[in-house]
Design a protein around this nucleic acid. Structure first.
Lengths: 152, 152
DNA sequence: TCTCTATGATTGACAAGGAAACTATAGGTT
DNA sequence: AACCTATAGTTTCCTTGTCAATCATAGAGA
């Protein structure tokens, strides 16, 4: 009798991954909340820091959200004067999003919070463990051909 | 000049953790969806398999959700005839939740899906890497004194 | 016993994302 | 040029969670 060993919930790596990841994200959410932004908003702002202007659809791909979600997320950031939407001069259908001055100014402070959050959860690991964790996670992304950055 | 190195988004372990975790959970969500349940519903059902009956508040703690969320989650499972709610005979305020026959019968199939999902994402790792990953994740939970199991 | 506070659970209002319908424009084909 | 299909974005509806208010009961203290 092989007795399939009962699938204990806590035996699943996926379970632990979700467990820890949610805590890390929740902790980060609390940190950025004080600055008036959500985690999704932070990710969008951060993406825009590198590029002059970017199409909503590209953001949707990169952030792993639907275009509808990006549309609304952009609305909220525009309402906070951190973002501007402009028509693409080369394509009548397309829009571009770019940071306002205020938006650009906000990013470094949030980045520092991201650093702090990472430190809070991972600094106690040995350098080897940190490297292994990163290697494993990147490996899964590569192996599975994952395309986008999740947010929630 | 130490030059704090710009906080590249992809340098954060929290980023990768969230990235991978969300994909693993989304893949699992698609699997259980075919059986008519959500991930949160699966977790609740699985928790109940071990205990005869359990208080909603205990579930809220364990699952890392608010009591309000558990209340509604239970409503949905009751509507699907997988769960029953009963008054606690010892405390007029308390309720207890327990699986119906159908609910209990559903769990093994879902557990198999959880196994399959884990295999899909982690089977390519060496046993050492799997062990390390589990150890690291458990270590973080312990170090940080995390109390509950996240769901979404 | 009466009252006050704490606790368990539910409910209502709101937030944020997904799916699908919809609008407008691009670009190829005839 | 006229049409047809593909693509970019937005909007609508639905789901599911949180937060805060609410209700009922428990249990301690005057």
């Amino acid at each position: 009798m092989p007795a399939a060993p009962a699938s204990d919930l806590t035996a699943h790596l996926g379970y632990w991954l979700r467990y820890v990841s949610n805590h890390v994200s929740q902790a980060f959410a609390r940190k950025v909340e004080r600055h008036g932004v959500t985690v999704a908003e932070w990710v969008l702002l951060r993406q825009l820091l590198d590029e002059e202007a970017i199409a909503p659809s590209r953001l949707a791909d990169r952030m792993g959200m639907t275009r509808g979600a990006i549309s609304k997320l952009a609305d909220r950031l525009i309402a906070k004067s951190l973002l501007v939407r402009a028509a693409d001069p080369e394509d009548g259908r397309a829009q571009t999003l770019s940071l306002t001055h205020a938006g650009r100014a906000l990013v470094p402070g949030l980045a520092a919070l991201a650093d702090a959050n990472d430190a809070e959860f991972f600094d106690h690991l040995t350098p080897e463990d940190r490297a292994t964790l990163l290697r494993i996670l990147r490996g899964i992304v590569e192996k599975r051909g994952l395309k986008f950055l999740p947010v929630d």
